[in-house]
Design a binder for these strands. Structure first.
Lengths: 343, 343
DNA sequence: TCAAGTTATGGAAACGCTTCCACGAAAGAA
DNA sequence: TTCTTTCGTGGAAGCGTTTCCATAACTTGA
């Protein structure tokens, strides 16, 4: 049988209370008692039971990370590992563990999360990208648990315990639109992630609004869903390029999709940027090493993760009010967008 | 106060035992009693406490995933997300949760893992890549918890509860060596991951042994540690290429390192493959879309994750003996290796 | 010298469930 | 009819901690 606090107490000739005090570094323990207890613990190879401790005190130091398997933030996107890694670093410093959930089945996930909160299994949540028309935050807000959303979330939710860390996707896309126009592109397409996440919606809408404001007509058919993988984006790009010969530029809401476009262009013998320009988003490791190097927007993924985690722990540990934060991005002008005005 | 089983029992006019039976779908409960209890539960918004359940029965259904932050399997490598995602899928199907730990501080991690096992917090472990001279498995084997190692581990450990899923890194590298020789390369360098993981050691050793067997002299200085990021690999490649003008090919033990080599080549105005050939390993999304497309080895990362998880659950759930498994890889011949014999 | 603090410790209730054992009632077997 | 079984249920002892309260032995300070 595994040794318990009771056995330790007996062997050390003290009460369970005293053993507990020793484990928790309570000051009111005589040094000799403490060392006696400690030596018995060592001798018996005693390991405290976390479940029992959790049950009788304040639960576990875990934070729950929720992602959508089928999304641009999905596990096979470099974004995912980066951000999990960053959150994990901060968590480790705070001696917290990470629990990973996908919310592909939302109702199920809400129930699970509520149960974990109720059981004091988790102290905070990081939501990697919120779905549009998701009830998740609405429900979870009621529990009062600190939540950090990476990205935008339903603006009608106002809760002290929910905070977002984000980049300005809408504005960035708007500026990309202006840049493309400035380079002389007027027939612009877009390959985007499925529009059930705010991030994708904003990246698309920013570009559309820019074009509208500048009175550039565009065809809704040139804005197509490119799924979440290189292959789906490739198929989408192939379709788009075949059916729209006048297109001179495509905005990919994610460098993974840009990869799909590069692949399609190569297979159609289209040169980038001479025949078709490409603008990406995120700036992954490989982006600058494509041929031509991909013009894209650098998103500070690592910072996104670190700052989210920091805010979360600050909320957990001190009940301090935290505020949402917008991180700056930077356009990386490289070689995948042609300047049509100089031709 | 949160409703407990006791309150439910009182309101429903039954004993706690009966409520518990209802929750656990025990057959010996009269249908009318069951529905009475269920309706009270609903009415009170009762949520079972997982901690209490865990304490008095058989713990939690969690599996622990351990990775090394500073390694080729680190979070910012596409490998990481892929494999976590794959394991997660299988875990979800089995209604298990994932807990994520890094083992950068090994002693600390051993202690944590042992404590979790002791507290019945986890039922199995997936170790993403084992360190050479690590005590982790040695210690954990003693606990009898099922463990799957992705990659090779200390061959002196023999335990019923440890199983590995891997690709044959040594053999693959050996074959890469032969292929390069066949293409007329005799001055071959290597940029590898730090040699504290079996995977890196094997990938390097396979090539070295090939060269030795074929009586091709090589300079140890041409085998250099390229760290774990594109940047560190880039620096390593720069150094290597500057100081070894006769090198005609470099083997990168990871496509991320190949990226570093591409970058170095570009900055030194070296053409791939005309001036320097590159052979990678893993075959990531971007690898086939580089210019030239990277010749590399396709590692079935997704399968690695799925199969590992399946084996783990089979061990957990049925005490069935599982066996280690070697997954097949496939060389992707693309454009980054020149055939010197045809020049 | 004695009341009023301290201090180190023990006892036992709580945390919220599960589960073993017991028991009465109903049902089947002899 | 009587003796076993089976079934639905309740009682209460765990599971392994923490923590509140009590207590006894020492200080202090006037």
């Amino acid at each position: 049988m595994k040794p318990t606090i009771q056995l330790v107490a007996k062997k050390a000739g003290v009460s369970m209370s005293t053993v507990s005090r020793v484990m928790n570094n309570h000051p009111a323990v005589l040094p000799e008692t403490r060392s006696k207890v400690l030596s018995v613990m060592k001798e018996l190879d005693y390991i405290p039971n976390q479940l029992a401790r959790g049950l009788s005190s304040n639960g576990f130091n875990n934070i729950l990370i929720i992602f959508t398997r089928s999304s641009t933030q999905a596990a096979d996107n470099p974004y995912f590992g980066n951000i999990i890694g960053s959150i994990g670093m901060v968590a480790e410093q705070n001696d917290y563990d990470l629990i990973l959930h996908s919310n592909d089945n939302e109702d199920n996930e809400i129930e699970k999360a509520v149960s974990m909160i109720n059981s004091k299994l988790i102290k905070g949540i990081v939501l990697l990208s919120s779905r549009t028309n998701s009830k998740f935050l609405e429900v979870l807000a009621g529990t009062g648990i600190p939540i950090v959303v990476i990205g935008k979330y339903n603006p009608s939710i106002h809760s002290e315990c929910i905070v977002s860390v984000d980049t300005d996707n809408y504005q960035d896309s708007y500026e990309i639109g202006d840049y493309l126009l400035q380079m002389g592109h007027t027939h612009i397409g877009c390959i985007h992630a499925p529009l059930n996440h705010y991030v994708a919606v904003d990246r698309v809408q920013g570009l559309k609004d820019c074009l509208k404001t500048r009175h550039i007509a565009f065809d809704e058919d040139c804005f197509v869903d490119g799924g979440d993988t290189v292959d789906t984006a490739y198929m989408a790009a192939l379709n788009l390029l075949c059916s729209n010969r006048q297109l001179t530029a495509i905005f990919a809401t994610d460098d993974i999709k840009a990869l799909g476009i590069y692949k399609a262009a190569r297979n159609m013998n289209l040169r980038i940027p001479e025949d078709i320009s490409v603008f990406g988003h995120n700036d992954f490791d490989f982006s600058s090493l494509l041929t031509p190097p991909l013009t894209t927007i650098r998103v500070p993924i690592h910072e996104l993760g670190m700052i989210s985690a920091s805010k979360l722990f600050s909320m957990i540990q001190s009940d301090k009010k935290e505020t949402s934060q917008m991180l700056p991005t930077k356009i990386q002008f490289r070689g995948s967008v042609a300047n049509l005005k100089h031709q």
